[in-house]
C-alpha cells in the first residue's frame, strides 16, 4: 500500500485559529488515513478541543483548509455542512447528554431529528446500540442524571455510533473516570471501532488510553503538530517534547502556562 497516495479521510492544512489576541492553533497540519485511529496528545489548553471543533464547523478557523474525503469543508454552511456532519459521530468529554430527554432518546436523537427515522424504529436502534456498549434495555428509560460518569460515557458512545458514522471523534474519553472504568471505556472504543471499521480522531492527555486506542499519534504543542507517527514509534520519537509528555516529567522543554 505504501507509495499509493490515498485520499486522507480528514486533512488539516495550515489551520489557524485565534481568540482575540490569543493564538490557539498556529498552522496545524494533520492527515488521517481511512480506517486509522489517530490520537492527538497535548497538555491542557493546547488547542486540542479547538482543533476538533474546527473540523466539525462549530468554530471557524481564520486561515487554512480542512478536507473531509478530499472535499474542502472549511467554510461550508447550512445543508452542505449538515451533509458532511452526517459522516461524524462525537463522544464529548462530559458526555454532553441532553438531560431533558431519557437515555434512549439521547441515543436516538440524531436518527429522529437529523434523519427523520420514526420514533418507534429509532427506539429499537437505540436499544440495540445501548446493548453494543454493554447497557441493558432497562437503562433506556432512565434520565441521564441518574447515571454514573462511566455510564454516561457509554451512553455518549452509543449516541456517537447510533447513526453509523464513518468518522468518530473522542474528546478526552477517559477523563474523570476511575482507572478501571477508563479501561472499560478504552476496550469499548477499540472493539466498536474494529466492528464498525471507522476512522477515529481522539484527543487525550491520558497516555495509557492513547496507546491503547490508537494506531497513530500526533502531538500538539503551542498550536502546531510537533511530532506525528505510528503509535509503536512514540517511544523512539527523538523529540524532547514528546518524551517529556509521555513520561509525565515536570522538568523539560514544556513549561506550564498559568493562563488558559
Amino acid at each position: 500500500m505504501s507509495g499509493v497516495a490515498a485520499v486522507p479521510k480528514i486533512e488539516l492544512r495550515g489551520v489557524k485559529k485565534r481568540f482575540g489576541d490569543k493564538i490557539v492553533l498556529d498552522g496545524v497540519d494533520l492527515a488521517i488515513q481511512p480506517g486509522h485511529s489517530q490520537v492527538v496528545i497535548g497538555g491542557s489548553g493546547t488547542g486540542k478541543s479547538v482543533m476538533i471543533k474546527c473540523v466539525l464547523g462549530i468554530l471557524r478557523p481564520e486561515e487554512g483548509q480542512i478536507f473531509v474525503d478530499g472535499q474542502e469543508v472549511t467554510h461550508l454552511k447550512g445543508s452542505a455542512r449538515d451533509t458532511v456532519l452526517k459522516k461524524f459521530g462525537m463522544l464529548f468529554q462530559g458526555a454532553a447528554l441532553f438531560d431533558s430527554l431519557p437515555v434512549w432518546e439521547n441515543v436516538a436523537f440524531g436518527l429522529i431529528q437529523g434523519r427523520g427515522v420514526s420514533r418507534a424504529r429509532a427506539r429499537d436502534i437505540a436499544i440495540e446500540k445501548l446493548a453494543k456498549v454493554g447497557l441493558g434495555s432497562d437503562v433506556a428509560m432512565l434520565s441521564p442524571a441518574e447515571l454514573s460518569g462511566g455510564m454516561q460515557k457509554r451512553v455518549g458512545l452509543a449516541r456517537a455510533i447510533a447513526a453509523d458514522p464513518e468518522i468518530i471523534f473522542f474528546d478526552e474519553p477517559t477523563t474523570g473516570l476511575d482507572p478501571i472504568m477508563a479501561d472499560v471505556i478504552n476496550d469499548l472504543i477499540v472493539s466498536t471501532v474494529k466492528d464498525l471499521g471507522v476512522t477515529t480522531l481522539s484527543i487525550t492527555h491520558d497516555m495509557v488510553s492513547a496507546r491503547k486506542i490508537s494506531d497513530h499519534i500526533a502531538m500538539l504543542y503551542k498550536g502546531r503538530i510537533v511530532w506525528a507517527g505510528p503509535t509503536a514509534e512514540i517511544d523512539s520519537s527523538e523529540s524532547a517534547l514528546v518524551d517529556q509528555f509521555i513520561h509525565g516529567r515536570a522538568q523539560g522543554p514544556i513549561k506550564m502556562e498559568v493562563r488558559a
Binding site: L56, L85, F88, F92, G94, A96, L97, F109, G114, R115
Partner: peptide, 16 residues
C-alpha cells in the same frame, strides 16, 4: 448550562 456542558455543540454534531 447546555452551553457549558457542550450540549449545544452536541446538537450540532447530531445534525440539529
Amino acid at each position: 448550562t447546555m452551553r457549558v456542558t457542550e450540549q449545544i455543540d452536541a446538537l450540532t454534531t447530531l445534525s440539529t
